[in-house]
Computed example of a mutant assay.
Amino acid sequence: MNYGKLIKKKRTELGIKQKEMAKDIGISTPYLSNIETNKKIPSKTLASKIEDFLEKKLRKEKKKKLEIDVESMSEKKYTKRELKEMEQEIIETYDLMQIEKNPFSKIAAIQRSLIEINKVIEENIIILETILEPLDQNILKKLKRPLKTTIKSFEKNKEKLEKLLANEYLIEED
């Protein structure tokens, strides 16, 4: 998928009109149309504005979806369709990162992902602590196995993050 088509697809998926996006990033609607049809190639600065605009809108959309209703909280089982949609979203994000050769956009995307991971973990730990506060021993015994499984998952992911951190290409910014 080329850059213009990808931009148009993301814009339409988010329900954004060309006019709104063009106005927000400071270009004319026909110019945005030319970018989406690959008649014009945006400058790096403009491509960055487009990316920032779409990411901002996507974050707002995700934030709406991430709001957790504590009362209806239960283990989510995903349908094949939902899993396929998540997989497609990951692939499209990867494609966008590959198209945009700017390493700073990749760094920003990774930083946002890490922030989101931490945020989700913290929110769910707070919910768990709130729910688990006044439990009796029988309930705690039944939760021991799922808690151990969650800890193992954290440990596996911790190892993955430590491998990334040990990567010789990472440079400290202190």
Rank of each mutant, 00 (worst) to 15 (best):
T45Y: 05
A47W: 00
I50C: 00
E51K: 13
L54P: 02
L54I: 04
E55V: 02
E55P: 02
K56C: 05
R59M: 11
K63E: 12
K65Y: 08
I68E: 01
I68S: 01
E71I: 13
S74V: 15
S74M: 13
S74G: 15
E75C: 13
K76H: 14
K76S: 10
K76L: 14
K77G: 01
T79W: 02
K80G: 06
K80S: 12
L83P: 04
K84Y: 09
E85D: 11
Q88K: 12
E89N: 14
E89H: 06
I91N: 11
E92H: 12
L96H: 11
Q98C: 13
I99L: 03
S105V: 15
S105L: 13
K106R: 05
K106H: 13
I107F: 09
A109C: 12
A109G: 06
Q111Y: 05
S113F: 10
S113D: 05
L114A: 10
I115R: 13
I115S: 06
I117N: 07
K119P: 03
K119R: 12
V120G: 08
I121S: 01
N124V: 00
I126H: 07
I127M: 01
I127Q: 01
L132R: 01
E133Q: 09
L135D: 00
D136P: 02
D136N: 02
D136E: 03
Q137L: 06
K142E: 08
